[in-house]
Simulated assay, not measured.
Amino acid sequence: MADATADDTADGGTPAVSPAPAEVALVTGASRGIGRAVALGLARAGLRVGLLARDGEALAEAAAELTAAGGRAAFAVADVSDAEAVRDAVAALVADLGPVDLLVNNAGRIDAEVPLWEADVEQWHGVVATNLLGSFHVSRAVLPAMVARGGGRTVDIVSGAGARDWDVASAYTATKAGQLRLVGHVHEAGFARGLRAFGVAPGTVETRMSTSMLVHRNRTEFTPVERTVDLVAAIGRGELDDWSGRYLRVTHDDVTSLRAHGTPAPGARRLGITPWGEDDPNAGEGLVPPAR
């Protein structure tokens, strides 16, 4: 349940509640890679963890690994691009583990490293369906209960590719930027209701996806996945609530550096248009991040 003694206020003077530390997490794309590592780290931190992905056999193995580490886990098979399947999966996990108070939208795909005019249409649609619609479907299935209970936290695993222009993988970059917009939306719409939302970019972790990419074919150093695990666990504990609505990048950010920075300035680490100067007519509301 939420802690109604928080000092923060949302726009309009409404008291903004702070969620209690998470007890139940839901991680999508949890059968392998970053999702599996995050799920295991949260289980080791004492959370009950729901695992969701398409590969039932891999999910069963991941759940067994979490249980062997002393955690409590349950899994459900669903494709995040299927809204009805997601609703059923979330309902089953909640029935087993209890209400979700930390959601980690991690499931993701990448398209071919070609310019947009060479992109495969079906593949492009598939990336959008998994990365952006998938995040929406799972959030839509989880957040109403969070709001009803007084709040909770969401993490979208995003990418530096969504925060800058890139000459390839146009579906991936567009969807990761879109996920950052969803993070900002959940923050703006849910802050006063106890929701906290974060976009976490994990850097280049050594996974099946990253090692298949041409841009990384000669890479020998990768970002340790433990950095992402540590940051997500700290978010679940409520240690980084001042950074709600913002973009965090584990190659440069950790719990210590973010907390040492203090409360970020309005608009800091928010996705927006950079004006050419104070006289830029496009520097008004709606084109730069709103203050919070």
Rank of each mutant, 00 (worst) to 15 (best):
N106Q: 11
G108W: 04
R109Y: 07
I110R: 08
D111H: 00
E113I: 08
V114W: 01
L116G: 03
L116N: 03
E118P: 02
E118I: 01
A119I: 00
D120V: 06
D120P: 06
D120L: 01
V121C: 10
E122I: 11
Q123C: 09
G126N: 06
G126Y: 00
V127T: 05
V128H: 14
V128K: 03
V128Q: 11
A129I: 01
A129G: 03
A129R: 04
T130R: 02
T130Y: 03
N131S: 02
N131R: 06
L132E: 14
L132F: 15
L133I: 00
L133Q: 12
G134V: 02
G134Y: 10
S135L: 11
F136V: 12
V138R: 08
V138L: 08
S139G: 13
S139P: 08
S139A: 15
A141V: 05
A141M: 00
V142C: 04
P144N: 09
A145Q: 13
A145D: 14
M146A: 10
V147E: 13
V147Q: 11
A148W: 13
A148Y: 12
R149P: 02
G150K: 05
G151L: 06
G151P: 12
G151V: 03
G152S: 08
R153Q: 12
R153S: 15
R153P: 13
V155L: 02
D156H: 08
D156W: 01
V158P: 06
G160N: 04
G160R: 02
G160Y: 00
G160P: 00
A161E: 07
A161D: 15
A161I: 00
G162S: 08
G162Y: 04
G162Q: 07
D165S: 15
W166E: 14
W166R: 13
W166I: 10
D167E: 14
D167S: 14
D167H: 14
V168M: 04
A169D: 10
A169V: 00
S170Y: 08
S170G: 11
Y172N: 02
Y172F: 12
T173Q: 13
